[in-house]
């Protein structure tokens, strides 16, 4: 059997390509179309073109608030993961290989644990009778029981916990590309440990931090299980809002519009910032 060599890559990637056309592109297109369908409490979904769903989501203050909250939570989570994930990655990278192995297991390992199980832990810690509240009372930091359930603070803390391993991973990857002699060189020229970090290490890992931030931001903005468990019905974010429209209100076209806005916004942010990072650092890092 002889095959035209030009066809070989097509034959090899063909099966996966067919599956993706059938199972990614067509569902997304159908959902995009759905977002322009009409819907009524009694008539259900009607295949008539309308922009009222999009108009509603964009113009209604209620949805504004939810998208605003989603954005705020995602930004805070990203900021905190940078603040704690970057130093932690640096510390891990300086450990002896044995200790690094152990603590990588501790820090990265939770990524493998179901996010529901991890969030449950925070739900147990957060309640007004939970350990955090008790500890704050015992230490005299708080006068009254502190209930972090159904608060933005709670969602931010739990999401930070869920997502910080991604930041550590991204920064570790950047750190391992550094030449350790460069730090020594800076030191031999008279720089203190802190100056070495600020002037030599940090600027070189900025691309790693930025790409970690993009990942964390995207995952935080579209997170579902954690805000659903910690935030509950009272504190909706974009993902839980779409869920409610679909499975409780049953207004699928509106839910589809929300999903499309989330998709377009996130893809734009991810693609845009990756382009920016590449262009900004192309000259220094090939």
């Amino acid at each position: 059997m002889t095959v035209n060599p030009k066809l070989t890559p097509l034959l090899l990637s063909g099966p996966a390509l067919l599956v993706f056309i059938g199972l990614v592109i067509s569902p997304l297109v159908m959902t995009a179309l759905l977002s322009f369908y009409d819907w009524g409490q009694y008539k259900g979904i009607v295949a008539e073109f309308t922009i009222k769903n999009w108009h509603e989501v964009i113009a209604d203050g209620y949805y504004y608030e939810i998208f605003g909250r989603t954005l705020r939570i995602a930004l805070f989570v990203t900021l905190i993961t940078v603040l704690i994930g970057v130093p932690e990655a640096y510390i891990l990278n300086r450990m002896t290989p044995r200790w690094r192995g152990v603590f990588l297991l501790v820090v990265i390992g939770p990524l493998l644990i179901s996010v529901v199980a991890r969030t449950l832990g925070w739900a147990l810690l957060f309640g007004s009778t939970g350990l955090i509240s008790q500890a704050l009372l015992a230490l005299g930091i708080a006068r009254e029981p502190v209930d972090l359930m159904f608060t933005e603070t709670g969602v931010v803390i739990a999401l930070t916990h869920v997502l910080v391993p991604f930041m550590v991973l991204a920064v570790m990857a950047a750190l391992q590309r550094l030449n350790p002699d460069v730090e020594n060189a800076a030191m031999s020229l008279g720089a203190s440990a802190f100056t070495v970090w600020r002037r030599v290490v940090l600027p070189q890992i900025v691309p790693g931090i930025l790409s970690g931030s993009v990942i964390v931001f995207a995952l935080a903005a579209s997170a579902f299980a954690t805000p659903a468990i910690i935030g509950g019905r009272r504190l909706k974010v974009a993902a839980t809002l779409a869920y409610d429209e679909f499975l409780n209100t049953l207004n699928w076209p509106l839910g589809a519009a929300i999903a499309m806005i989330l998709l377009v916004a996130l893809v734009a942010i991810i693609v845009g910032s990756n382009r920016l990072i590449e262009r900004r650092y192309a000259q220094v890092f090939e």
């Binding site: 460069v182 060189a185 031999s188 008279g190 070189q204």
Partner: peptide
């Protein structure tokens, strides 16, 4: 301390600061 010794070191890998 190594950063106070005032010695000039040239590394095998050069160890130049790539970002400046």
């Amino acid at each position: 301390q190594p950063n106070k010794r005032g010695l000039g070191v040239v590394f095998q890998s050069y160890a130049l600061f790539p970002h400046v």
